[in-house]
């Protein structure tokens, strides 16, 4: 069974073809494709227009690269939220048109759910598990009971973790994307050079706040002398504070619900220090922690195709009436 997956939830247009829920035939992301056109990779913009320009091109390229005919596609999966609504509607409309013309089912996929499930592209994990989806746009802990049964346990109250990293990097003028740059600095830095607060770490919930941590770092920079020498130490201490909270709260959820498996996805999950901390802390608690490989941590079409594949197997009814949404509905979700 061949499933096409489309994600346009933010700046990137991502499309992938997946065979039998396991084999990624091809996964393309607009920022990584040499388009021979003057589209800047990293300059964010009102992405919908960019998606309109790119989506057809990337779809055609995938078919050419894989020698798959459109008629070989058994179903179309597409992100219908959460994300930037204008961008989502581009992907959703394209997918509806495609499904209609191919006379194949259309399966709407929740972007956060797909991140939590992306581990199954490369690994088998036992249900139930706790998932942390952490990126530039999201910081969410989910309890995943079954493929299509999950519950949001907590989310950020202000900034996403990756957003705080990006904003700090921009504030310090050290480049974009902030996450990988701060990770690089931190590798050589002293982790406890400054003690930054661990916001909400002791609260009896699974929510996060990264805005205050961001402000603490800005205050520190304003009140202290920053040199080329201590910048790595300051950033390393900042990263450590953010990851302390991420790991602590996710592991707390795992302990509270007595679930011994954690899955970490989303762009920030590529960070090696975060992985190391999760593995260390998990080991102490007897919890196994799984990470997707970096290509599937970032937004991608393969994870969308994967969830759509599960949906097709389960016989989830296809409908062209699916609507897009921008914010993640909180609470229990069963499909």
């Amino acid at each position: 069974m061949i499933v096409l997956g489309i994600d346009t939830s933010c700046d990137d247009t991502s499309i992938a073809l997946l065979e039998d829920g396991k084999k990624v035939l091809r996964s393309l992301i607009s920022s990584q494709v040499d388009l021979h056109r003057p589209f800047g990779g990293i300059v964010p913009e009102i992405a919908s227009r960019k998606h309109v320009e790119l989506i057809d091109y990337i779809y055609e390229k995938i078919l050419i690269d894989t020698h798959i005919k459109a008629s070989d596609i058994d179903g179309v999966g597409v992100t219908n939220g959460p994300g930037l609504i204008g961008s989502i509607l581009v992907g959703l409309s394209f997918a509806k048109g495609l499904a209609l013309s191919l006379r194949k089912p259309l399966i709407p996929v929740n972007h956060i759910h797909a991140h939590a499930m992306s581990i199954f592209l490369e690994n088998e994990v036992q249900f139930p598990f706790i998932a942390l989806v952490v990126s530039g746009g999201h910081t969410i802990i989910l309890l995943v009971k079954e493929i299509f049964e999950y519950k949001i346990l907590g989310t950020t109250r202000d900034d996403a973790a990756g957003e705080a990293f990006d904003k700090i990097a921009k504030f310090l003028n050290i480049g974009y994307p902030g996450g990988s740059i701060i990770e690089e600095y931190s590798k050589k830095g002293i982790k406890d050079y400054v003690f930054f607060p661990r916001p909400m770490i002791n609260e009896e919930n699974y929510d996060f706040s990264f805005s205050g941590l961001k402000t603490s770092l800005i205050n520190y920079i304003k009140n202290n002398i920053v040199t080329n020498d201590n910048l790595k130490d300051i950033l390393s201490s900042f990263q450590e504070a953010a990851f302390d909270v991420l790991t602590f709260k996710t592991i707390k959820a795992s302990k509270d619900y007595n679930i011994k498996t954690i899955v970490v996805g989303g762009g920030v999950a590529s960070n090696l220090r975060l992985r190391e901390m999760f593995l260390e802390k998990g080991k102490k608690e007897g919890i196994r922690v799984f990470f997707s490989s970096p290509q599937f941590c970032t937004d991608n079409g393969a994870m969308i195709a994967l969830v759509a594949f599960f949906g097709l197997k389960r016989g989830i009814p296809s409908s062209l009436d699916v609507k897009g949404f921008s914010r993640m509905p909180l609470g229990e979700l069963v499909i």
Binding site: P82, T155, D158
Partner: peptide
């Protein structure tokens, strides 16, 4: 939760 819309640009 009213969160930062830096990522989604508009929240309603």
């Amino acid at each position: 939760y009213v969160v930062s819309p830096s990522f989604t640009i508009i929240n309603i």
